[in-house]
Write a protein that binds this DNA or RNA. Structure first.
Length: 415
RNA sequence: GUGGACGUAGCUCAAUUGGUAGAGCCCCGGCUUGUGAUGCCGGUGGUUGUGGGUUCAAGUCCCAUCGUCCACCCCA
C-alpha cells in the first residue's frame, strides 16, 4: 500500500495556533505556581517499565495495555512514561531528598498512552503536573486546591466545578472494600457486564458507572466517606474547612475514584461538561504510601495533573497579532534604506516583516494578510528625509515620523 | 480492545436509479508600476484515503486496509 507519510495515530502536531495556547497555559502555570514556591523539574520521558508496574499498578489499564513499552538494544525494559507522578517519586528518591524537607515540584511535558483516540484523548498528550512531597495534613491539600483553582481562574476557565472525596487509607479502606464487594455481589445480576468485571478489579469504580440502570441499583450503596477511620475523617473535614476558608467552591462527590492504585485519602477532580465524555480537566489527590512502596521512607505526598490539550480546548482562540509593522519599499532605490529601517525597528523590540519590495499593491496586500498593525512606507521621499511614512492599517491614517517614534506610536495603538 | 459515523482540489462541500468529477474560499497573474480588507478578468490545482472485487461503465455497489471523528472501556 502506498502509505502517506503522516504522524502516528492519536499523536498530533503542535502547530502555531495550538502552541500559542500551550505557551499561555505554561506561562500562567509558572506564574501561579511560583506564588506557592513550587519549582520546575524536568524529568525523563523514558523510564524503566518496572517503575510504573510497581507504582501505578500492574492491573490498571494504563500499565496492562496502554504503555508503549519495549526492550532496547541492550535488553533493558523501558517505556514511554504514561503519567508523571511515578517518575517524580523516582527522581525524588534518586536525588536523596527524603531528608531535605518539603519538596514542591511541577513539570510539564508529554505523556503516552496507547488508547483509542477521541475528543480530549490522545496517545501523546501533555500534562502539567504538581507534586508536593513531605507536605502533610489537610492544609497542604487545601492549599494545593487553592493553587489549582487560581491556575484555572487565571486562564479564564470558568465552567468547571471541583469535586472532592476521601478514598480512605490502609487502615480503613480494606474493611470498606469488603463490605462494598459484598453489597455488589448481592446484586451483581442487575449490574452491567463491565460493572461485574469491576467488582473484583476496582469495586469503587462501580459506584461511578455511567449506566443509569446500574445507578438505579446503587442508590443505597455504602460509600467510603461514611466508612473512613477517625484520622481520615479528621483529614477530610480539615480539607473542607480549609477550602471554605480559601473560598474555593467544591462539592463532595462520594463516588469519584482515582484510577491509579497509589492514591489515598483526598481525591479531587475539576470537571466540565464542555469536553464530551472527557470531563476531567485537572485531577489528583494524596498518595502517602507511594514513596515508601518505591523503596523510600514513609513520606506524605499530594499532587495533581492537568491535561494541557483539554485546558486549551476550554480557552478561546486568540486572534493572532504577531506583526507590528510591515516595511514596504517603493522602488529599488529605497530597498537598502527599507532594510535598515526594518532592522532598526526590530532593535526596539517590535515585530517587523519586510514586504520584499515590488509593486506597492502587492506589498500592501501582504501587510494586510499578515495582520500587521502598521505599514512603514518607504520611497524616495522618505529615503531623502530619513523618515518613515507610517500608515495605520485599521484606520487608514498615515503620518510621517522619525524611526525612533514608531515604537511609541505602536504602543498607543496596542493598548 | 468494542461499537457507530465519515474519508472527493490546500480548506468547506456538491455530483440524479452506477453514465464525461464541479462550486465557493484560498493561492498565482493581470486591471498602465506611491497605498491594503470588500471590485473585475484570467490561471494553477484531484489516479475521488489506499488496495482489491462486481459491471460495458464505480466518487456512487461489495470486501479489505489505513485514517479522522464520536461513544464504550479507561483516563489528564
Amino acid at each position: 500500500m502506498a502509505k502517506k507519510l503522516q504522524s502516528i495515530r492519536g499523536i498530533h502536531d503542535g502547530l502555531p495556533v495550538e502552541v500559542s495556547k500551550w505557551r499561555k497555559i505554561e506561562d500562567v502555570a509558572r506564574k501561579v505556581f511560583a506564588t506557592h514556591a513550587v519549582s520546575e523539574v524536568r524529568l525523563p520521558i523514558l523510564e524503566p517499565t518496572e517503575l510504573f508496574v510497581r507504582s501505578v499498578g500492574e492491573e490498571t489499564d494504563i500499565v496492562s495495555k496502554e504503555m508503549y513499552a519495549f526492550e532496547d538494544q541492550g535488553g533493558d525494559n523501558i517505556c514511554l512514561r504514561p503519567e508523571g507522578t511515578a517518575g517524580a517519586v523516582r527522581a525524588y528518591l534518586q536525588a536523596g531528598l527524603t531528608r531535605a524537607g518539603a519538596q514542591r515540584w511541577f513539570y510539564m511535558g508529554p505523556m503516552f498512552r496507547r488508547e483509542r483516540p477521541q475528543k480530549g484523548r490522545l496517545r501523546q498528550f501533555q500534562q502539567i503536573g504538581v507534586e508536593w512531597f513531605a507536605v502533610n495534613g489537610p492544609v497542604g491539600d487545601a492549599e494545593m486546591l487553592g493553587m489549582a483553582q487560581g491556575f484555572l481562574d487565571e486562564l479564564g476557565i470558568e465552567k468547571v466545578r471541583l469535586e472532592i472525596n476521601s478514598l480512605g487509607c490502609a487502615a480503613c479502606r480494606p474493611a470498606y472494600r469488603e463490605t462494598l464487594v459484598a453489597y455488589l455481589h448481592a446484586r451483581a445480576e442487575s449490574l452491567c457486564a463491565t460493572c461485574n468485571d469491576r467488582i473484583e478489579k476496582n469495586p469503587m469504580r462501580v459506584l461511578d458507572c455511567k449506566n443509569e440502570s446500574c445507578q438505579a441499583q446503587l442508590t443505597d450503596a455504602p460509600e467510603m466517606v461514611a466508612h473512613v477511620c477517625g484520622d481520615c475523617e479528621t483529614h477530610f473535614s480539615g480539607l473542607k474547612s480549609g477550602l471554605d476558608a480559601l473560598g474555593v467552591r467544591y462539592e463532595v462527590n462520594p463516588r469519584i475514584v482515582r484510577g491509579l492504585d497509589y492514591y489515598n485519602r483526598t481525591a479531587f477532580e475539576f470537571v466540565t461538561d464542555q469536553l464530551g465524555a472527557q470531563g476531567t480537566v485537572l485531577a489528583g489527590g494524596r498518595y502517602d504510601g507511594l514513596v515508601e512502596s518505591l523503596g523510600g521512607p514513609a513520606t506524605t505526598a499530594v499532587g495533581f495533573a492537568a491535561g494541557m490539550e483539554r485546558l486549551a480546548m476550554l480557552m478561546p482562540d486568540d486572534d493572532k497579532q504577531g506583526v507590528d509593522v510591515v516595511v514596504v519599499a517603493l522602488g529599488d532605490g529605497a530597498l537598502p534604506y527599507s532594510l535598515q529601517v526594518a532592522s532598526q525597528l526590530r532593535a526596539t523590540g517590535i515585530a517587523v516583516l519586510h514586504a520584499g519590495g515590488g509593486a506597492a499593491k502587492k506589498q500592501f496586500k501582504f501587510a494586510d494578510r499578515e495582520g500587521a498593525l502598521f505599514v512603514a512606507v518607504l520611497g524616495d521621499n522618505e529615503v531623502q528625509q530619513g523618515v518613515v511614512a507610517l500608515k495605520n492599517l485599521a484606520t487608514g491614517e498615515q503620518q510621517v515620523c522619525a524611526i525612533e517614534q514608531v515604537a511609541s506610536l505602536l504602543r498607543v495603538v496596542k493598548v
